[in-house]
């Protein structure tokens, strides 16, 4: 598959996830030693390759293009939110009086990308109010425990906050870009065929080896209309 769609724009992660993983693990190794030397670099490379061979990761579907400015904005927003929420929770912890009431709120998300969902869960646990209790990619729903949400207005505020965060994350571009033009032969999908143990997939559609077939049907039906608006 990778040879077939050469020259086509691919996701920044979709290009070579394995190479990126090796680079990341090598970087961690060098940082752990604290000093740069060729011995550290080569040792890190060996360890990284060894780890990835022994513990292979499932393919992550990615697509789109990274927008650094949007990413910077999300990082700054989350950092600010983390500061606010820390003070908030710290106050809720030490203030006198009865324990705070809370809510478990279901939030639907508009995209079914697992990567986006993972990032959303990570961010939501750090920003004010919420810890994600459960998540379902098939149902595109998160259930978050919102500390201190004791009326419907607070629940609505939380929903609006999630929607904003999701929109910001979508701006970054790490969501999956679906195949919208299977007929025109254009493939804009980030699944790396190297990670697929058995890449005999005749369709040009995205194929996630670890995915349930049912989830794929549902999303391929729903997504093209949404992608057309981009």
């Amino acid at each position: 598959m990778s040879a077939a769609d050469g020259g086509v724009q691919r996701g920044f992660l979709g290009r070579r996830p394995r190479v990126l993983r090796v680079l990341w693990l090598t970087l961690v190794w060098v940082l752990l030693w604290g000093t740069f030397s060729w011995a550290n670099l080569l040792g890190g490379l060996a360890v990284a390759v060894g780890v990835l061979v022994l513990f292979p990761l499932p393919a992550v579907s990615t697509g789109g293009r990274l927008r650094p400015l949007a990413l910077l904005r999300v990082v700054l927003d989350v950092a600010r939110d983390l500061a606010v929420s820390s003070v908030q929770v710290a106050w809720q912890s030490v203030r006198p009086g009865p324990p705070p009431r809370s809510s478990i709120v279901a939030v639907e998300i508009s995209d079914d990308s697992e990567l986006l969902m993972a990032m959303l869960v990570e961010c939501l646990s750090l920003v004010p109010g919420s810890v994600v209790v459960d998540a379902s990619a098939e149902e595109r729903t998160l259930w978050a425990h919102v500390l201190g949400a004791d009326d419907d207005a607070a629940v609505d505020r939380f929903r609006a906050q999630v929607a904003r965060l999701e929109a910001d994350l979508l701006e970054v571009g790490v969501h999956r870009v679906r195949v919208e033009a299977a007929s025109s032969g254009r493939t804009e999908v980030g699944t790396d065929p190297l990670d697929d143990p058995d890449p005999v997939d005749p369709e040009p559609t995205e194929h996630r080896p670890h995915d349930a077939a049912g989830a794929d049907d549902d999303s391929s039906a729903a997504l093209p209309s949404r992608e057309a608006g981009r």
Binding site: V89, S125, L126, V131
Partner: peptide, 18 residues
């Protein structure tokens, strides 16, 4: 001090991380 496990996880993530 927080009343249940879910509330306590708030304390264990945000102020702790920050």
């Amino acid at each position: 001090r927080l009343p249940d496990v879910l509330s306590r996880m708030h304390a264990a993530t945000k102020p702790q991380t920050a």
